[in-house]
């Protein structure tokens, strides 16, 4: 049992790392602040500090933690449900559908007029994309069929997004769409936080209780059924949770790839491979990844900010490859 005891502090350690990064995220940027300046800014005693801390950095921080956390959680749920280490939230097609909803609004040019129209369209598109999956799950609980339908929806949404881009005659609109698709936490306000967080909370409330079902699915669908898990309902709740969480994340911050795939892998070796114990650490690892990436994009010298979606890949991939190389059993594919 000694090894088990060694890995238990994982969650507090990840929590502490998230808090430290949150502090760093408030301190760092084009203007470096001291901790006392942050307190003054939060208190509102200095108007210019208040603008930097309360209006610029705080919503950005809250969103990067929320979006990263949800991506990590949804990635762990997607991998556990499909029992596939290659899975990520995008395998169900909902992020692509959300991106299409947002791009359609950007194309129509109404995004700036009603700033909330874009996220609302993105979340709506994500939920609509579930229709095909729900129709499938009425009669079929086979996870492979679910994956195939999800991939189909993702491809369709991707094609629709390309169609909108190719129809766009305005080069400025195309640039806006392309940059938006890369994902960013820049210039986000508490309005975005208020819009996305209720969905994040519903997503977490839906996915955390699924841990027991994911645990049973380790031994396959038949055994899960025999252990009293309704696999069909488990799939439905998982896909709904992912659509709400990731849909809302894409809606407010654009498409941030890779976090959903890599976050579960970063923590799986410390969770003994157990899907139920993976959810919370994976959520924290996702939050850490995006917050680190968001700090880095502000510090890199560039004429315009490097997009956070680019940075998550640059930070995550080398570590990811190192882990895969040094731990051949961690993705469930260890050779004999």
């Amino acid at each position: 049992m000694s090894k088990r005891l060694k890995i238990e502090p994982l969650v507090p350690m990840l929590g502490l790392a998230t808090l430290l990064l949150a502090g760093a995220s408030l301190l760092a940027g084009p203007v470096y602040l001291t901790p006392s300046e942050i307190v003054n800014g939060l208190g509102g005693s200095d108007p210019s500090l208040a603008i930097i801390v309360r209006d610029l950095r705080l919503p950005r921080l809250v969103l990067s933690i929320g979006v990263g956390g949800i991506l990590g959680l949804c990635g762990a749920a997607a991998q556990s449900l499909t029992r596939n280490p290659l899975a990520e939230p995008a395998v169900f097609g909902t992020p692509q559908a959300a991106a299409f909803g947002a791009v359609a609004v950007l194309y129509s040019g109404s995004a700036s007029a009603v700033s909330l129209l874009l996220p609302v369209a993105a979340i709506s598109a994500a939920l609509v994309s579930l229709a095909a999956i729900f129709w499938l799950l009425r009669t079929n609980s086979n996870i492979v069929s679910l994956l195939l339908v999800g991939l189909g929806i993702g491809s369709l949404a991707g094609a629709a997004t390309s169609l909108v881009i190719s129809f766009s005659s305005n080069p400025y609109a195309i640039m806006e769409i392309v940059f938006w698709l890369m994902g960013s936490f820049e210039d986000r306000s508490f309005q975005h936080v208020l819009l996305a967080y209720p969905f994040f909370i519903i997503c977490a409330l839906l996915l955390f209780p699924c841990g027991r079902g994911y645990q049973a699915l380790t031994l396959g669908e038949d055994v899960a059924w025999s252990l009293g898990v309704n696999v069909r309902r488990l799939a439905l709740v998982t896909v709904l949770g992912i659509a709400m969480g990731v849909g809302a994340g894409v809606a407010v911050c654009g498409a941030i790839g890779f976090v959903g795939l890599v976050a579960p892998h970063l923590v799986r070796p410390f969770c003994n491979g157990e899907p139920a114990r993976l959810l919370l650490p994976s959520m924290l690892a996702g939050a850490i990844l995006t917050t680190m990436a968001d700090i880095a994009v502000r510090l890199l010298p560039a004429t315009s900010e490097v997009r956070v979606g680019v940075l998550t890949a640059f930070i995550g991939v080398p570590f990811f490859i190192y882990l895969v190389k040094n731990n051949d059993g961690f993705s469930g594919t260890r050779s004999q």
Partner: peptide, 8 residues
């Protein structure tokens, strides 16, 4: 029967 994750 399969065991899909590297569990103890």
């Amino acid at each position: 029967g399969q065991i899909h994750w590297p569990m103890r």
